[in-house]
């Protein structure tokens, strides 16, 4: 097995509408590792997530991103997905008239590249994932995110991730807006997918989800930069002290 990191970010700079929002971020995520990026609103953590997945509004001005040794920055979002990146959206888009099953089949079909066996057991797989995420089977005929509650949308994001089995899963505030029961279900889904073959980047504002999905590393992002990195204990410290103690350090530096 290759020993290079599954996701390697090297001095990444990102702009939105001409304003720099990520100002030089470097990270290495190895197989089997769960990383959490925490930070206050507007710190650039969601921008980092979207830029890696190839959102057209986020322009990468410099830096490098490799997935399993492969440079992905020249790739369009489709190719990035096929290379193994998955972004669970903070605000998933509704696609009226397109059923969950039809959409999932198209996505799985794109990923298996003609592997008939996987396609043949598609329905069975989908049913198993509905059970995992404790979603009613009637979701299969509903339209993608159309009229879904906030919690249903987030479960469906994790369901998609479970179906596509990515190498690099980036979860953008999947925990926001979830009540405690939904949070537990979503976390169960994440833990089920998490393995020695993939890596997770959890973008979150709160420490709460980290009680259910245990991170190996925690990074704190502020003002477009990784301000501090550490183990799980860093999350607890943030929970206790808030972001203010780091903020004051940022200001002191400036």
């Amino acid at each position: 097995m290759s020993t290079q990191p599954l996701l390697k970010i090297n001095d990444l700079h990102v702009e939105v509408a001409g304003i720099e929002v990520v100002k030089g971020v470097s990270l290495e995520l190895n197989r089997g590792e769960v990383h959490a990026i925490m930070g206050p609103n507007g710190s650039g953590k969601s921008s980092l997530a979207n830029a890696i997945a190839g959102h057209p509004s986020y322009t990468i001005t410099s830096g490098e991103v490799f997935v399993d040794g492969e440079d992905i920055l020249e790739m369009d979002p489709t190719e990035r997905s096929l290379a193994g990146i998955f972004l669970a959206f903070q605000y998933p888009m509704a696609v009226p008239g397109v059923t969950v099953t039809g959409f999932m089949r198209s996505a799985v079909k794109a990923h298996v590249k003609g592997d008939e066996q996987i396609l043949r057991r598609f329905r069975k797989d989908l049913k198993a994932k509905f059970e995992l995420l404790e979603m009613d089977p009637s979701f299969s005929t509903r339209y993608v995110n159309d009229g879904f509650s906030g919690g249903e949308k987030k479960r469906f994001e994790i369901l998609q991730m479970a179906m596509l089995n990515p190498k690099v899963a980036i979860l953008d505030e999947t925990d926001s807006g979830l009540d405690i029961d939904a949070l537990k279900v979503v976390s169960k889904g994440i833990n089920k997918v998490q393995s020695e073959e993939n890596t997770f980047l959890l973008v979150t504002h709160y420490q709460r989800i980290l009680n259910y999905v245990k991170p190996d590393f925690v990074h704190v992002m502020m003002d477009g930069r990784i301000k501090q990195s550490g183990g799980p204990e860093l999350a607890h410290k943030l929970e206790e002290l808030g972001y203010d103690w780091l903020k004051s350090e940022v200001q002191a530096e400036a």
């Binding site: 997945a53 190839g54 369009d76 997905s81 959206f89 696609v95 959409f103 198209s106 996505a107 794109a110």
Partner: peptide, 17 residues
């Protein structure tokens, strides 16, 4: 972007929409 980030091509995404 949502649909292409799941592996669909842009053309497939437009057609699906």
């Amino acid at each position: 972007f949502y649909l292409t980030s799941r592996g669909l091509s842009e053309d497939e995404a437009r057609l699906l929409i």
